[in-house]
Design a protein around this nucleic acid. Structure first.
Lengths: 208, 208
DNA sequence: GTCTATAGTTAGATAGAC
DNA sequence: GTCTATCTAACTATAGAC
């Protein structure tokens, strides 16, 4: 896969990145069907027909965008492993998830929108790589429980709780800023999120 | 508003309900732009042109659908008030939110999709009625804190945590069932969700 | 690799007969 | 209140010159 990308010409590589970036904004704003290749071309400053030169069709563009997002997620979040204590591991995991919501909210939103609408493209991923990755994390939590390091919580639901509560600040940002009476969340706001979620979730798992 | 509905003819009332119900499935499957009035008409077993007889245009149909959803939410969830103890109130709130995800997941998904895409229609609501409703709930939690009934948690982030973790089972259901290796969640699964979330969140707030 | 022109499709919306 | 026919707009995708 890295090989494929290396073997692509420089111009091709650069333009594909430009288009994918523009497409991210477009898909997140208008949804899959609402997204228009004309506007993606304008955002990327590339002639409309050239989008079709680089991507087979709209679905292909959307699929490659999702692949990129998943790839980042799978490499980014590996603080949850059995080598670490639950307190340090869970704290780091919560922080990195919140910071990802801060730094790349559109990635989270596109993933969320795909799942909400039934995961037409990601269904295969959810029933293959995702399950393997998840089983690893569940095993780590089960080990902590059997060692008496945390309370006997349901590992799956603990993970769902962490995912949902952290991604909330990307996906539902418009509701959050309304609730907080802000124009946008700043660095301190996100630190307060990390502190609040860490406080409740760690104590909720019996970690002191 | 109830008056308006009463003053509408029976046929009109019944057909509007049929159309709104069909539209809910259609919007949740294809998104706003992807939803087709043709398919909504087919789902509702009503001639296509009649959709335009009952609703001004597609946006009007979508707005009325969202209004219905909000109306149910605003009347349904008032267990969070100062008359109750935090333990009973939060337990009941978590349960009712989870059960809503079970019983009407599409409502949750349409709301989520609207917010993810920037709340073009609900922005006004988020900056008016929603803020009033939210401030009440925040005040209740602050009262509990100052009475020493729960830990000093950030009220906003506690509410976000409850919303996100409970709505997760509607919005991200496709990921949840993949993770749990199921075809669909059953009654027991949802009871396990209620138990897990209640366990972690209540303990996390220092409620025994 | 880029760009213009255009084919072909789909869908929202309305008019007007019944 | 219902239904057929039709208008109009938007957008994907491709062909072909440069």
């Amino acid at each position: 896969m890295a090989k494929d990308k290396m073997s692509e010409g420089n111009i091709r590589q650069k333009n594909k990145a430009l288009i994918l970036n523009a497409a991210k904004k477009e898909f997140v704003t208008y949804g899959f069907k609402g997204a228009s290749i004309k506007r993606i071309a304008e955002r990327a400053n590339i002639a409309r027909a050239n989008i079709h030169y680089y991507f087979k069709d709209k679905t292909d563009l959307y699929q490659q965008l999702l692949s990129n997002i998943i790839e980042v997620w799978n490499t980014d979040y590996d603080t949850l492993n059995a080598d670490h204590e639950p307190k340090a591991a869970l704290s780091a995991y919560i922080r990195s998830k919140v910071m990802h919501s801060k730094n790349d909210p559109d990635a989270s939103r596109i993933f969320a929108s795909e799942l909400i609408h039934g995961a037409p493209v990601l269904n295969e991923y959810l029933n293959s790589d995702f399950k393997v990755w998840l089983n690893n994390k569940v095993a780590v939590i089960e080990a902590w429980i059997s060692q008496g390091l945390i309370d006997n919580v349901n590992p799956h639901h603990l993970l769902f709780l962490i995912w949902s509560s952290t991604q909330h600040y990307a996906d539902f940002n418009v509701q959050v800023v309304a609730a907080l009476n802000k124009d946008a969340m700043n660095d301190d706001d996100f630190e307060e999120v990390v502190a609040s979620l860490t406080q409740i979730i760690l104590k909720g798992c019996g970690i002191r």
